[in-house]
Nucleic acid binder design. Structure first.
Lengths: 150, 150
DNA sequence: ATTATTTAAGAGTTTAATGTCTTTAATATA
DNA sequence: TATATTAAAGACATTAAACTCTTAAATAAT
C-alpha cells in the first residue's frame, strides 16, 4: 500500500471530523465506531495530529476531538506527514542514501515527478473543502460504504 | 517507502544482471556482495523471478543466475509484480474494498492518475535498455556508490 | 467531594516483513 | 566415484507495524 494504515486511518478520521465539525468535540469512540477503526489505535494516531496542532482534544464529559482552525485549512499531505513523517516525499525510490541529482539512481528523475504527483494528490485542497466535496459526492470513506456525511 | 525492500533488492539485482549478462551465469553470492544485499535473502527474492521465468538459475559449479530472454525484455514493473504482486497497482489508495468508479473514495480519481504515473515510471523501458542507460550515465545502484557497470 | 466520562500514557500482543542459518539437491570436475 | 560448488528449501530470529488492554489524568455534573 502507498500509505501506512496509520496514515489512512488519520485521513479518514480527519475527513469525518471536517464533515462533522460544528465547533463542538466529537468523541474518539464515536469516530472509531463510525469508521470501523480500533478505538485505542485511533486514539494514538490522533495524538500525532493534536501534537501538530491540526486537532484539539478535550478530556472529560462532552470532551473529544475536533479539527483546529489550522486543521481545517490543512491538507491530507499535512496529515500524512504528521503521522508518518516526510520520508515518502524525501527518500530515493530505491532507498539509496547517496542518491541525488548529482549522483542519481536509475529512477531518480522519474521518481521526482511521480512524487510530486503524489504530493499534489494529497495537497490538492483543504480538509474543509474536501468535506464539502465529500458531502456533495457521497464519497466512500468506510469499508462497508455505510457512512453519513450529513 | 513506495516499494518493499524485497522489490528494491529485486530491481537492483535485475539491473546488475542486465548489465553483466554475457550468456553465462552470475553467482548469487557475487551479486549479493556487489550490491550489499544479504545473500540468503536475495536468493529467496530471486526465486520469485525465476518462478516467473524472468530469470534462469543453474545449480553446481559455474552455476548461478541470469536474465532470461523474457527477462531482458521485461520492465521493473514486471519485477515488482513478480515479487510483491499487483496490489499496489490495483488497490484503493485508502484500502477500501468497495471503492471503485461507481462508488469512489475521495482519492479515487487522483489516485488512478498517480498510479499510472508509478506504472509508467517502472514500465518506461526494458531491463536491457536500462542497463545501457546505466552504463552511459553511471547510475547509482548501491548504498555506497561503489559499483562498476562495466 | 464523588462519580461518570473522556483523552493520555504506557505496557503488552500479534502479524507481517525482513534477515539468518542449516540442510538438501543438483551438477561439474577431478 | 568422490569432492567441491552452487541454488533451493525450510526452520528460525529479529524488527517494525498494527492492534489490544490497563491505568492515569483531566473535567463536568451531581
Amino acid at each position: 500500500m502507498l500509505l501506512s494504515k496509520s496514515s489512512v486511518y488519520g485521513i479518514r478520521a480527519s475527513l469525518y471530523l471536517a464533515a462533522h465539525n460544528r465547533g463542538q468535540y466529537n468523541s474518539i469512540r464515536e469516530v472509531s465506531e463510525e469508521l470501523d477503526i480500533s478505538f485505542h489505535f485511533l486514539t494514538k494516531i490522533l495524538q500525532n495530529l493534536t501534537a501538530d496542532n491540526l486537532m484539539e482534544s478535550y478530556k472529560g464529559p462532552n470532551g473529544g476531538i475536533r479539527l483546529s482552525a489550522k486543521g481545517r485549512k490543512a491538507t491530507l499531505l499535512d496529515v500524512v506527514i504528521a503521522i508518518d513523517g516526510p520520508d515518502l516525499f524525501v527518500e530515493c525510490a530505491l532507498g539509496l542514501p547517496g542518491c541525488g541529482s548529482s549522483d542519481p539512481c536509475p529512477l531518480h528523475n522519474n521518481w521526482a515527478m511521480v512524487r510530486e504527483g503524489i504530493k499534489d494528490m494529497l495537497a490538492r485542497t483543504t480538509l474543509e473543502e474536501m468535506a464539502k466535496e465529500g458531502k456533495a459526492n457521497k464519497f466512500r470513506i468506510t469499508p462497508d460504504g455505510h457512512f453519513s456525511w450529513q
